[in-house]
Design a protein around this nucleic acid. Structure first.
Length: 472
RNA sequence: GCUCCCAUCGUCUAGUGGCCUAGGACGCUGGCCUCUCACGCCGGUAACAGGGGUUCGAAUCCCCUUGGGAGCGCCA
């Protein structure tokens, strides 16, 4: 039997990290077993579904690299099929028309709540309605078994038993004939021959109903795995007020997709003490069976640590590709001139936790800065820096080769000649060239900035120093 | 309220009856390295929710309590 998994988001917003995690788990499961991963858009809620959300979800999946083998299938395109199955169930007596008004249902619920009972449909129309009230468009309800139990052998939760007496006859088609969620899921999982349903555990309580319908339709239910939800750092359900929950927000904040994937996989799951997993390792080692059954809190610091790890250790070429997107947001096109981006990545990779940070710290390689960092200029571009900088300017101008090694020698030579510590000269130089006291090693920095720009900025700094009012 | 689920450092986790004076990682923190910022390296901090059992022996098995979560829609 070929494994077939699916990710079935409803397009009512962006792809959030919780959805990304269940998508990842489904994808991993399919890849691990040489199966098929299907994307299905559950857009039956016409009110809330939007085309923009579909795009956002697709974009998120693409950025993460979770490519699907089939789909996207849209439930709104499948209404004829749902109608067909509803007719069939009606004909076979597995479903029935219910004429109860919303008012009666509401009252019923209120009464049951008042009696401290679990609110549920009382089955009034289950055995037929002799005189249907005129003008009422009936809904269709599934005839749930009255007794017995449904046992879910959940890959993560283990055996979970539900008594049928706890379940009521759910509505599978609305008054206007449109199918409801729990029903479309059943038909789709059946038609798409889904073998493993990996989804959020908010669906665990829906599972027995879905299994009952599947059985009524003569289909063997798939294997289920309900993954616990993600909590915010404060232990409450992860939501917007915790900050970034959208996958694309993480891209814009400077995270690498593999870092997010690694973090998400490791959240609620582990393989011994291993923290870092390449995609291939995840496919090989990930075991949905070993996912914790308790909810896990999202820890942004650890994600950031992983991101830093990947920035530092991934192929610089790959990092550069993602970095150029962030430089673009600063109005810089690294392909249009300036130092080789890959070299910039190599110089910066150990000093950035995110690509947004790296981009921010790298624009000076490509673009002149408008002003110095005030504090750094005040502490380093002082009169006493004038002499070493002038001296340095001469040596740099005379350098036969513009290489880090030569530059380094020139800088140390000036320091020695003037009896200064390296920092006394490297820092003013750094501020002159980078605009502030933070940059890669000074020789590498100058090398990347280039001789022409370096001398230009050195002159500007000298000029700046001369223009400062002479104070103590 | 009812049904279902969950419970090891602040967080993610290892642990499946003796290897546990509970291990790793993030974070925080002391130190080293150092031209800045960092990286790196060495060290420290901190947990089995509580109570009963079972057992020679329990973080590991059972029960209760407490605490948390989800579901109970003509939403998905």
């Amino acid at each position: 039997m070929t494994v077939r998994t699916r990710f079935a988001p409803s397009p009512t917003g962006y792809l959030h990290v919780g959805g990304a995690r269940t998508a990842l788990f489904s994808w991993l499961y399919a890849r691990k077993h040489g199966g098929t991963f299907i994307l299905r858009i559950e857009d039956t809620d016409l009110e809330r579904s939007t085309a923009e959300s579909v795009d956002a979800i697709l974009q998120g999946m693409t950025w993460l690299g979770l490519e699907y083998d089939e789909g996207p299938f849209y439930q709104t395109h499948r209404f004829p099929r749902y109608k067909e199955v509803i007719q069939q169930m009606l004909k076979e007596g597995q479903a029935y028309h219910c004429y109860c008004s919303k008012e009666r249902l509401e009252q019923l619920r209120a009464e049951q709540m008042a009696r401290k009972e679990k609110p549920r449909y009382d089955g009034k129309c289950r055995h037929g309605v002799p005189n249907p009230p005129p003008g009422v468009a009936p809904v269709v309800r599934f005839k749930n078994p009255l007794d017995g139990a449904v046992v879910v052998e959940d890959l993560i939760r283990g055996r979970v038993t539900f008594q049928n007496s706890e379940l009521d006859d759910l509505i599978i088609a609305r008054g206007d004939g449109s199918p409801t969620y729990n029903f479309t899921v059943v038909v789709d999982d059946m038609d798409m021959k889904i073998t493993h349903v990996i989804r959020g555990d908010d669906h665990l309580n829906n599972t027995p109903r879905q299994m009952n319908m599947l059985k009524a339709l003569g289909f063997t239910p798939p294997v289920y795995a309900h993954v616990p939800m993600i909590l915010g750092p404060d232990g409450a359900r992860l939501s917007k007020r915790h900050g970034a929950v959208s996958v694309m927000q993480y891209r814009d904040d400077g995270y690498l997709p593999e870092a997010l994937l690694n973090y998400l996989a490791r959240l609620g799951w582990s393989h011994g003490d291993q923290e870092v997993f390449s995609i291939d390792e995840m496919i090989k080692l990930f075991d949905v069976t070993k996912v914790h059954s308790s909810a896990a809190a999202f820890n942004p610091e650890k994600l950031t640590w992983l991101n830093q790890h990947y920035i530092k250790n991934n192929d610089p070429q790959h990092v550069a590709h993602h970095l150029s997107y962030h430089l673009g947001r600063h109005g810089v096109d690294p392909a249009a001139g300036g130092p080789d981006l890959v070299e910039v990545v190599k110089a910066q990779r150990e000093r950035a936790k995110t690509l947004a940070e790296m981009a921010n710290n790298s624009v000076f390689f490509y673009k002149d800065f408008a002003s110095y960092d005030p504090k750094d200029a005040a502490s380093h571009l002082k009169p006493e820096a004038e002499k070493p900088l002038k001296e340095l300017r001469e040596r740099l101008t005379a350098l036969p080769l513009w290489e880090a090694q030569e530059i380094h020698e020139a800088v140390t030579a000036v320091a020695e000649a003037l009896g200064l510590k390296l920092g006394k000269i490297a820092q003013p130089l750094r501020v002159a060239v980078a605009g502030r006291a933070i940059s890669p090693p000074i020789d590498v920095t100058l090398m990347l900035v280039g001789r022409e720009k370096t001398l230009e900025r050195l002159d500007a700094a000298l000029e700046y120093i001369r223009k400062q009012p002479v104070t103590a």
